[in-house]
Design a protein around this nucleic acid. Structure first.
Length: 303
DNA sequence: AACGCGCGCAACCGCACATGT
DNA sequence: AACATGTGCGGTTGCGCGCGT
């Protein structure tokens, strides 16, 4: 659709296209930039009464001098209940890396797996942190080289940090339910795990959880340690506690497994898995040591 | 204290798709 | 079927803040 076709006289300076035009507010009254407390209050009050959606109608009825899109964005990214703000936890970072390797820049899809986080926030995280790292490595974020750096350096390191942060707080005899604040902040409700929206009945629901079989979370001390971050990531998950990968041999075809060994089935392929192989091609190789990390970093630096 | 710089984040933009008429 | 309108998404921008000099 040719947006210029819908530009109205007087709106060109704002580059506002037809779908951004408030029907009831002339352009000169349209506010832009940071939202004020008063505007937030009006928006929240309106949504509390009338619910979400129909954003252009909201503009006309609420008195807000904002575009419908601006209202929607403000609500979704800031005012909506349960929006989490603040530092991205280690577990969340790990999940972002893993999900990005699967889905690429599909931020909204990735956000579905990080309750309370918005696609905007994840996108910002990726751009400011991850792309910065890529820049330091002098490679493109989409390059195989960078993908391998993530897979074999950063993800294991993240897991190591998660592990050590949990180790440092878990008292003898306690389960991981009492692990770090960062872990608990990320933990799905008891008895639930993340679901794959692409192939489950949970698709479309606001909660991206599926019940897990009872007892699934208590079978192994080792796995319990990682239970708060139990995530479905790929056919090639690494277990820091055992020094092993959960390779595709755990499942088959387009399936994979969780850290506790239970399997998932997915209709959507894990895009990057085929292009990744451990150095030397041995998926069982234990990369969980500084020597190998150092080696990989040297490889990356010397490339 | 003043200044410059880089970073993080909220908000904007353009486009594509969905839905309504 | 064609067009109008609404919504969602990914990319981009610009501002405020903290930090170093």
């Amino acid at each position: 659709m040719d947006a210029d076709k819908y530009l109205l006289r007087g709106y060109t300076s704002l580059s506002v296209t037809h779908d951004q035009l408030p029907r009831s507010e002339p352009e000169e009254d349209l506010r832009k930039g940071p939202w004020t407390v008063g505007e937030d209050s009006i928006l929240m009050e309106y949504i509390n009464i009338h619910g979400e959606g129909r954003w252009n109608l909201l503009v006309g009825n609420s008195g807000l001098k904002r575009s419908g899109k601006s209202c929607r964005l403000r609500w979704l990214n800031y005012l909506r209940p349960n929006v989490r703000r603040g530092n991205i936890t280690l577990q969340e970072q790990l999940l972002i890396l893993q999900l990005h390797s699967r889905w690429g820049n599909r931020w909204s899809k990735i956000a579905e797996y990080l309750p309370g986080r918005t696609d905007n926030e994840i996108k910002n995280y990726w751009r400011t942190r991850v792309q910065k790292q890529a820049k330091q490595l002098n490679c493109d974020v989409n390059s195989k080289r960078f993908q391998e750096a993530m897979r074999y350096v950063w993800i294991p390191r993240l897991m190591e940090r998660i592990q050590s942060s949990i180790d440092s707080t878990v008292v003898s005899g306690q389960t991981t339910a009492t692990a770090t604040a960062t872990a608990s902040a990320f933990t799905p409700p008891d008895g639930y795990c993340f679901s794959d929206q692409s192939n489950t009945a949970a698709a479309g629901s606001s909660q991206n959880y599926l019940p897990v079989a009872s007892g699934a979370s208590s079978s192994s001390t080792e796995f319990n340690i990682l239970q708060p971050t139990r995530t479905k990531v790929s056919e090639l998950d690494y277990y820091p506690t055992t020094g092993e990968y959960c390779s595709s041999t755990y499942g088959s075809g387009n399936s994979g497994c969780y850290q506790d060994g239970s399997q998932f089935q997915g209709s959507d392929q894990i895009e990057s898995s085929n292009s990744w192989s451990a150095p030397g091609g041995d998926l069982e190789e234990n990369l969980w040591n500084e020597e190998n990390i150092w080696f990989l970093q040297q490889q990356l630096n010397n490339d």
